[in-house]
Structure formats: structure tokens, C-alpha cells
Design a protein around this nucleic acid. Structure first.
Lengths: 225, 225
DNA sequence: TGCTGTGAATTAGTTCACAGCG
DNA sequence: CGCTGTGAACTAATTCACAGCA
């Protein structure tokens, strides 16, 4: 059996699921569980057992037939695959409502993502402190990132002008962008962008409410609390 | 021309893209543009022109051959498809960092999503006000939603206990959930859940930084090669 | 026996390519 | 002509099903 590492062709959804597996493995470890089967992982995650095994198979062989997977070992390997086995510096642009909320997000720490700087272009905000970080002037991003060396950036700015911000980030050495603005970014080939669009998510949900499209059900006048 | 409404088999990604088209159409309308071709839409959105046409084809015929699409008409029809042609009441559970930030999110208004109540189970928070909404005790959700009639809920609570919250929401008549907690929810067949996982997004980005995976990250089976 | 790892089959989603209408 | 709408071809992702190992 020649195990061939299909490295170049890992489906994107696989990477997202790896993060889910990791979360469950951490829970299992805390519960002192030492080994786990793909069937048990399906119970915990809702993700098909064959899918779990195939996802792992893109990166090598991890389990013992007849036994399952060693929780700690698998956890360790997934963190290496996702490159969160060591600290990943991340910068955030936009200290508005959403941006500020994200600074306090505990998931960063848990996953070795370290928020190392927050930027904004609003002079009224520059200099103030959120969660131990002083808000920096976005004009200095290029210079400051020479020290920080962040390759990942989170964009929590309004849609207007987000492209210019992205361009500047690319100039500053950023290779991966998590974009919360409702806009489609143009970036060089070697830069990855993931869009998080609340609007899109809500649209999908809205479509699925109240059944068929020709819905005769009257939307009742709604009060507010 | 036989117009067939393929309603039952609309790909999920199509719905998300409809929201993107809508955004661009609103921009075009503001710029006084009256008609648009699928090729121009590709330029504006980065989404393939054939994809745009096929997405629309699931819902009928919208354009004029040789001309394109009437901006206002298309806009109108997409809002009807997504059921955001009229106000959609939405409730939010969890008034923490993220939840509070979402209350101020301007995208709700723009898309006829109206946040009608915010709930939390922390007595210290119940009663205080964010953006004109008084935080309600989550224990009253079922009772209050008899008036509010929200079918969409946003979950911005910690992972622990999120399943119980979801169960209660389903009991309260909620049919669609936008879940921000890093956990997999079990809900009845007729309830839709969309998960937004920052961690998953960051994991995908992290994987793509610093080029290809190191050879040492793929661990070959010990007894082979 | 009970499990993994993986080709094969299946299903979902995207893009092509072109007939046909305005 | 220039464009839409759509079957057909293609590509991606998921799930099945089973050989083979501990």
C-alpha cells in the first residue's frame, strides 16, 4: 500500500472540519478519554465517520485499526497541520463595534492565535486601549508589521474603502485575510481571503423560514421589546 | 419559454450569492444605473457570469436577451425570493461581547431584519439597555415570542449549554438559527442552522500561511517506505 | 472481531457552450 | 448582432462499501 500525500488537493471544507475535530478532541482530553473511534467522533460532531477518516487521510495515517485514534496524538497532529502548534500573530483592522468585540474573543488564545495589534484610521480612537492593546494609526501598519510579522489580518471595517485597506495589508506582508465587510476583495494570487457575511447567512435563513415562496401567511404586525 | 420554478432544489451557495447580487444592485441603483448584464455583474462581484444567470434561473426568468437585467426589477425580485421584501423579526440570545456588538450592526436594517428582542440568562444583565432594547430574561423567551413571532434567532452564547438554549428556541417557534457558538446543534428536521465559526475561518487561513506544509507535518506510517 | 484507510460510486455545485430571443 | 437561459460537461465534495490490519 503506497500512501500518497495528496497535499496539494485538500478540500477547503476539510480544513474547517479539522478545527471542529480539534475542539472535540480537547473536550475529550479534558474528560480523560484516551482513544476515540471515527464512529464516536460522528456522535460528537454530527460529521459522517467516513468523512472524518477521509479528512485525516489527506495528511497521513493516524489511527489503529480495531482501536481508533489516540486523542492526544491526533490533537497534536491537527494543530501541526493547521499551524497552530505555535503562536500565530494576528492583526485586526477596525476598532468599531464588531472589531472591539472580537478583541475580547477567547477563542484566539485557545487556538494560539495572538492578537498583536489593533488598527483604526479614526484619530479619535487611536491611542485608546482595548483589552491591553493600544489602538494604532492604520497609516503605520506597514512599518509596525515589520516588527510584528503578522501574516493573518482580520478586517472589521465598513465596506467603503475596504479595498484600499486590503491593498495596504498585502503591502505589509499579510498573506491571509478574514474579511467581515460586505465587499469582494481583489488580492494577489498568493493571498487568501475568507469572507464572513452576516447578511449572507441571514439571507439563507430568511429564505428557509415560512416554507414556500408564495407564502400566503401574513406577517403579523410586530411589536418590539 | 417554459418558466419552471425549481424551488425545491436550490443550492445553498446560490442563496448566499443572491445576497451579494442584491448588495451590488443597490449600489448600482444608487449610481443611477438602470440595466446591467451578467458580464457586468461578474466584474462587480467576482462571481462567474454563467453562475449568476444559473442562480437566477432557479427562480424564473429575469432578463432580456441582448439587453440585460433591469436593476430595480431584479432587486425587487431577489428581496422577494429571500423574503426580505418585508420586515423579518429576529431575536438575539446572549448579550456578551459579541452579542452586544451585533445589536448595533447596521446590516440588519438594510436587509429588513429587525432585531426585536435581546435575551440573556445573567440576572446582572437583564434589565439593562443596548441600542433601545431592554435585555430580557431568557426564561421568558417562549412567552414573549408568542407576541414577537420571530422565526429567526441569533445565538451568541458560550458553547456550554448552547444546546439547551437551542431547544428552548425551537419550543418558542424559531425555525432558523444563526449559531456563533463553537458547538454542533441538534435540532428537528424543519429547523435550519447556520454556523459561523471564527475558529474554523482562522484555521483555514492559518493553514494557508507560510506556503506549503512542511514535510514533517505529514507523518508517514512508521513501518513503510 | 472492530476498527481504519481508501478506491469507487454518488451527489452537489460550477462552468462551458450554444440555441434562440429581442 | 449581444445577450439570456439552460442542457451538457466538468469539477468538487461526500458517502459507500469493503479489503486488510491490530
Amino acid at each position: 500500500m503506497v500512501t500518497q500525500f495528496n497535499q496539494s488537493r485538500v478540500p477547503v471544507p476539510t480544513l474547517g472540519r479539522l478545527a471542529t475535530y480539534l475542539r472535540v478532541l480537547m473536550d475529550l482530553d479534558r474528560a480523560k478519554v484516551e482513544t476515540v473511534s471515527s464512529a464516536e467522533m460522528e456522535r460528537q460532531t454530527g460529521i459522517n465517520a467516513a468523512q472524518f477518516r477521509k479528512d485525516l487521510s489527506y495528511f497521513g495515517e493516524f489511527g489503529k485499526p480495531g482501536v481508533g485514534y489516540t486523542v492526544l496524538d491526533l490533537q497534536d497532529r491537527i494543530t501541526r497541520i493547521l499551524k497552530i502548534d505555535r503562536r500565530q500573530p494576528v492583526i485586526l483592522v477596525g476598532a468599531g463595534n464588531l472589531g472591539s468585540a472580537l478583541v475580547g474573543y477567547p477563542g484566539f488564545q485557545e487556538n494560539q492565535m495572538e492578537l498583536v495589534a489593533v488598527f483604526d484610521n479614526n484619530p479619535a480612537k487611536v491611542g485608546s486601549v482595548i483589552h491591553n492593546l493600544t489602538i494604532q494609526d492604520f497609516r503605520n501598519v506597514k512599518e509596525l508589521n515589520q516588527q510584528l510579522n503578522a501574516r493573518i489580518a482580520i478586517l472589521a471595517v465598513p465596506a467603503v474603502g475596504v479595498q484600499r485597506v486590503a491593498d495596504e495589508l498585502v503591502q505589509s506582508g499579510v498573506k491571509a485575510i478574514l474579511n467581515f465587510a460586505p465587499a469582494t476583495l481583489k488580492v494577489p494570487e498568493d493571498v487568501v481571503v475568507r469572507n464572513v457575511s452576516f447578511m449572507q447567512e441571514l439571507a439563507v435563513l430568511s429564505y428557509h423560514t415560512s416554507g414556500r415562496m408564495l407564502a400566503s401567511d401574513v406577517v403579523p404586525p410586530a411589536n418590539k421589546i
